[in-house]
């Protein structure tokens, strides 16, 4: 017999005997549900109230598996002599999971947090055509969406917290309407929490960051955080900014429209 054959045979026996005494690796899936990692991409869930039918998701989808139908609805003016407004009403929102490749781009681009990853994965069908799921099914999956992971210590406040702390702009009616829509969205998911800061020095970091990014805002005063916030984040609230601008032009208050300009004036 060749050299090393006998040790090899004994080693083989030892290996199998050792595995016999250890735990098996079998995942007993239907009996024991698997422990999925955080941010598992199981299925895409929809919060219908948050959707504005902006079509960003449908346009960015690489394999065009999102179908959106909507119509415009005219809202009567809220104040006498005001203008009637139009609003998109979602008629159909469907994702064809036989085409979806789970890239998550639709979730990334959604400006209103209407789409979320759910870890739910047991939705196999016998017919591939049954994988086209409409908004009621997508909405039912929202219940399985986990709370977002906690923010890092020392990070900036979550956007929804900042927005909620913002004092109302313009008249109370507009702010109330804006708060109403936001409230509906926030109610669909639990708010994020921030982890406790590990050291006291970590707390001022976001302030310094903002100063570096926006030098024009260096001379701001503590009395105007809300105005600055709106200048920093205009695209997130496009519709509201427009409404605010309308309101401001009606009242002739320039500081509401151009907060950074007013800051500069004050500094000088």
């Amino acid at each position: 017999m060749a050299d090393g054959m006998l040790p090899g045979l004994v080693k083989g026996l030892a290996t199998t005997a050792r595995s016999l005494t250890r735990h098996t690796h079998t995942a007993e899936y239907p009996d024991v549900s698997p422990a999925l990692p955080p941010r598992s991409r199981g299925v895409i869930a929809l919060t219908e109230e948050n959707c504005t039918s902006c079509m960003l998701c449908a346009r960015e989808c690489p394999d065009w598996c999102i179908y959106i139908d909507s119509h415009k609805e005219e809202l009567p003016p809220t104040t006498p002599g005001g203008r009637a407004r139009q609003r998109n009403v979602l008629d159909r929102f469907a994702i064809d999971f036989s085409l979806c490749m789970y890239c998550g781009i639709c979730i990334e681009v959604c400006p209103f947090d209407a789409l979320h990853w759910s870890p739910e994965f047991e939705y196999a069908e016998l017919d591939i055509r049954d994988l086209l799921h409409e908004k009621d099914r997508l909405g039912a999956w929202m219940a399985t969406v986990p709370a977002p992971p906690a923010l890092d210590p020392g990070s900036a406040d979550p956007a929804e917290v900042t927005a909620a702390a913002k004092p109302p702009r313009g008249s109370a009616g507009v702010a109330g309407a804006a708060g109403g829509t936001r409230g509906a969205g926030a109610a669909a998911r639990p708010a994020r929490v921030r982890r406790e800061a590990t050291s006291a020095t970590a707390v001022p970091a976001p302030e310094a960051e903002q100063t570096r990014v926006m030098p024009a805002a260096a001379g701001r005063t503590a009395s105007q955080p809300a105005a600055e916030q709106s200048a920093l984040l205009p695209p997130a609230d496009g519709a509201q900014a427009e409404e605010a601008a309308d309101q401001a032009s009606a009242q002739g208050d320039s500081t509401q429209v151009l907060p950074t300009v007013s800051t500069d004036e004050e500094r000088e």
């Binding site: 016999l20 250890r22 690796h25």
Partner: peptide
């Protein structure tokens, strides 16, 4: 069963 457990499996269940 023995073969399954020697290979880290459960075998028929």
């Amino acid at each position: 069963k023995v073969m399954a457990h020697m290979q880290g499996r459960l075998g028929p269940m």
